[in-house]
Design a protein around this nucleic acid. Structure first.
Lengths: 200, 200
DNA sequence: CCTATCTTGGAATAATCGTTCCAAGATAGG
DNA sequence: CCTATCTTGGAACGATTATTCCAAGATAGG
């Protein structure tokens, strides 16, 4: 009997992600969302609830669409250290050029905002962190079996270090850092983890 | 002939720094500043100008009071690698415990906000980055003369990597990361830069 | 076609945003 | 003490904030 939605909530959420990602969720008003999506306040609130819920939904969508594919690609890449290197090369490229250049990472940005203090949001941040560290560790474990890693390296600590490095790349890229500089920093960390003959 | 200020702009700016640092500058309103400092809007605007200028002033004050002493201590510490280790130990301690626990770093946080896009602010961010990297490099150069660093390590790249690592520590600490985890990550990076016998 | 039920557009809400303005108060040189 | 000049308190500004509400529109089962 009832009416159905006159829009697609999925594509709407994608538009919201772009908005929050580029400008920042805190400074993006509902009016901006209304204008960008073209739909009315009623539909917006009926579908997503308040702004904080919209923010959480956008963050989840970002992880799903942007982060997860890359994390899975890293975990599935069986090359070891070159897999990690490739991850960072693609990361730096995405952060410094293309349509999302200078946008940083929505998850990373959220860490620094007031919304990052909300328990609901912080749980997402932690899940994101665990996911990236796990993918890093998986790649490192492959690297170890291939003898690419220096003796005595703790894989958990190394995975944490590389994950932190990724955050910093996201952060500095937003301020306009050069790709070559970021890549050189990452490479220095990675080289420190590998055996001498494995570096290139 | 004229009247003089009935308050001390210096202590006022310190209070503003605390406010912007803890809560975030974007979500902190002028009303909050008025309440925290106890002075009126008139005095605030007459002394500091608008909010964006107040933000820039607070950022500069933060660098002066919080960052500079620590950076100088790092650059002046002649122990080499232990100096860098000590820097990070104090950093993690300051970020995870004490009165500023979970506040992160005002400069790091600003990277992720919309204000970080303003040319005036971005220049401060870049100066901060250069200052920390220079201090790191100075410590690394001492370390090299002491034979603490592994052969082939590029000091500039290593300094950049450590600087990035510091940003990430600031970021993750705000989301409640554990000190031990952060320290283990940092230590992994640093160990990768040092000679085998120098690690501990 | 009718009607129950949802959706939609858009007005209206109260609160808060950064900023401005002015009269009243305070100060120090003459 | 007087007065020129700055500072201060606080009201007021229009714009924007997130959110609510309701009548009008749209849909699909009966």
């Amino acid at each position: 009997m009832p009416d159905i939605k006159h829009f697609d909530p999925d594509t709407t959420l994608d538009q919201v992600v772009r908005l929050f990602w580029q400008r920042g969720a805190e400074v993006t008003g509902i009016a901006d969302v209304v204008q960008a999506t073209g739909l009315s306040r009623s539909s917006l609130y009926a579908t997503f609830g308040g702004k904080s819920q919209l923010q959480a939904a956008a963050l989840g969508r970002y992880r799903e669409r942007q982060s997860r594919p890359v994390f899975e690609a890293l975990a599935a890449d069986t090359r070891g250290v070159p897999a990690i290197a490739a991850f960072f090369e693609r990361l730096v490229a995405a952060r410094c050029s293309g349509e999302h250049a200078r946008w940083g990472c929505l998850v990373t940005n959220t860490h620094a905002t007031a919304s990052g203090g909300l328990p609901e949001i912080r749980e997402i941040l932690d899940r994101h962190h665990d996911a990236l560290r796990a993918a890093m560790r998986a790649a490192l474990e492959v690297a170890r079996t291939k003898g690419q890693l220096r003796a005595g390296l703790k894989l958990g600590d190394a995975a944490e270090a590389l994950t932190l490095q990724a955050y910093a790349v996201n952060l500095r890229s937003r301020a306009g850092a050069e790709a070559a500089v970021l890549l050189a920093g990452v490479r220095a960390v990675l080289d420190g983890f590998t055996t001498t003959e494995e570096r290139r």
